[in-house]
Amino acid sequence: MKVIFLQDVKGKGKKGEIKNVPDGYARNFLFKKGLAVEATPANLKELE
Score class of each variant (00 low, 15 high):
1 M>D: 02
1 M>I: 15
1 M>W: 05
1 M>N: 04
2 K>F: 15
2 K>H: 10
2 K>R: 14
2 K>E: 10
2 K>S: 11
3 V>M: 02
3 V>K: 00
3 V>D: 00
3 V>L: 03
4 I>P: 00
4 I>N: 01
4 I>E: 02
4 I>Q: 03
5 F>M: 03
5 F>L: 07
6 L>T: 07
6 L>S: 03
7 Q>Y: 12
7 Q>M: 12
7 Q>D: 08
7 Q>I: 11
8 D>M: 04
8 D>L: 04
8 D>S: 08
8 D>F: 07
8 D>R: 04
9 V>F: 03
9 V>H: 02
9 V>P: 00
9 V>R: 01
9 V>Y: 04
9 V>Q: 01
9 V>I: 08
10 K>W: 14
10 K>Q: 13
10 K>T: 11
10 K>D: 13
11 G>R: 06
11 G>H: 08
11 G>A: 05
12 K>M: 15
12 K>H: 14
12 K>L: 15
13 G>T: 03
13 G>P: 01
13 G>S: 04
13 G>Q: 02
13 G>E: 02
14 K>P: 01
14 K>L: 11
14 K>S: 09
15 K>T: 08
15 K>A: 10
15 K>I: 09
15 K>S: 06
15 K>L: 06
16 G>R: 03
16 G>E: 02
17 E>D: 12
17 E>M: 06
17 E>I: 03
17 E>T: 06
18 I>L: 07
18 I>E: 03
18 I>G: 01
18 I>A: 04
19 K>L: 15
19 K>Q: 07
19 K>N: 04
19 K>G: 08
20 N>H: 14
20 N>F: 15
20 N>V: 15
20 N>L: 14
20 N>S: 12
21 V>S: 02
21 V>T: 02
21 V>M: 11
21 V>F: 09
21 V>R: 00
21 V>K: 00
22 P>D: 13
22 P>F: 08
22 P>W: 07
22 P>T: 09
22 P>Q: 09
23 D>V: 15
23 D>T: 14
24 G>K: 11
24 G>D: 15
25 Y>L: 08
25 Y>I: 07
25 Y>D: 05
25 Y>R: 04
25 Y>Q: 04
26 A>G: 04
26 A>W: 09
27 R>V: 12
27 R>N: 09
27 R>F: 12
27 R>G: 03
28 N>L: 11
28 N>P: 00
28 N>A: 07
28 N>T: 07
29 F>W: 11
29 F>P: 05
30 L>H: 01
30 L>F: 02
30 L>R: 00
30 L>E: 02
30 L>T: 00
30 L>N: 00
31 F>S: 03
31 F>Q: 03
31 F>G: 02
31 F>D: 04
31 F>E: 05
32 K>Y: 08
32 K>V: 14
32 K>T: 11
33 K>Q: 13
33 K>Y: 15
34 G>E: 06
34 G>Y: 09
34 G>L: 08
34 G>I: 03
34 G>R: 08
34 G>Q: 09
34 G>P: 00
35 L>H: 03
35 L>S: 02
35 L>F: 10
35 L>E: 01
35 L>W: 12
36 A>F: 01
37 V>R: 08
37 V>L: 09
37 V>G: 02
38 E>Y: 05
38 E>R: 09
38 E>P: 12
39 A>F: 12
39 A>G: 03
40 T>A: 05
40 T>K: 05
41 P>S: 11
41 P>H: 10
41 P>D: 13
41 P>R: 09
42 A>N: 09
42 A>M: 09
43 N>E: 07
43 N>W: 07
43 N>I: 12
44 L>Y: 07
45 K>G: 09
45 K>N: 11
45 K>M: 13
45 K>A: 13
46 E>Y: 15
46 E>R: 14
46 E>L: 15
47 L>P: 06
47 L>V: 10
48 E>Q: 14
48 E>N: 11
48 E>S: 13
